[in-house]
């Protein structure tokens, strides 16, 4: 049951978002009901183009208008969820799991390594705008602890050298 990251890092699931949102437009909905697609929309907008990982002020205003939600309320909704960012993040968001399972299986080793390699600590973005580093509370893959997620991809069971190689490749890729 290896759950290593599949596919190319940096891919977003825009296509999935669209596919799953579309049936709802035919549902009998009042405006308020339409809001069940709001989180999907926020994900979609946040990852609208390759390498974009945050929601801009303009985008937020646009969504508020589309959904008929006061901007202040939408701001409160976006800030509630950990996966959304209203501030510029790196092209690639690294999420390091620090749940108990990952912690006792070595999450700190990865954290210290990433800190040193990238020169940033929790919640920061590298100067070249390539990576942001976040700590999350559980990625739900504790059988392969310690885990990290890079963008949409779960990365488990890699050595520090292999993680380095992956980050170097992503940094070279450009947008």
């Amino acid at each position: 049951m290896a759950m290593n990251g599949k596919g190319k890092a940096g891919e977003t699931d825009d296509a999935v978002g669209n596919a799953s949102i579309s049936p709802n437009t035919t549902a009998p909905n009042t405006q308020i009901k339409y809001r069940d697609t709001l989180l999907f929309r926020l994900h979609e907008v946040q990852n609208r183009t390759r390498g974009k990982t945050w929601i801009t002020k303009e985008e937020l205003a646009g969504i508020a208008q589309d959904y008929g939600i006061p901007l202040a309320e939408l701001d409160g909704i976006v800030s509630f969820y950990t996966m959304f960012s209203r501030e510029r993040r790196g092209r690639h968001v690294i999420r390091l799991c620090d749940s108990l399972s990952c912690r006792i299986c070595g999450s700190l080793d990865i954290y210290q390594h990433l800190r040193k390699k990238l020169g940033i600590s929790r919640g920061m973005t590298t100067g070249d705008g390539v990576f942001s580093l976040e700590i999350v509370n559980c990625l739900g893959a504790c059988s392969t602890s310690p885990n990290i997620m890079i963008d949409d991809h779960l990365i488990s069971g890699l050595s520090l050298a292999e993680i380095d190689a992956m980050l170097d490749r992503l940094a070279k890729e450009g947008v």
């Binding site: 978002g17 799953s20 308020i32 809001r35 069940d36 697609t37 709001l38 989180l39 999907f40 926020l42 994900h43 959904y67 939600i69 409160g76 909704i77 509630f80 969820y81 950990t82 996966m83 959304f84 999350v136 509370n137 559980c138």
Partner: peptide
Amino acid sequence: RKGGGSYVVGDETALLNSLMGNRG
């Protein structure tokens, strides 16, 4: 539907709030 990252939303009432496009 896809969540946005929140532990509390695993509670059924919080989940419904989230599903309705609110804070969880």
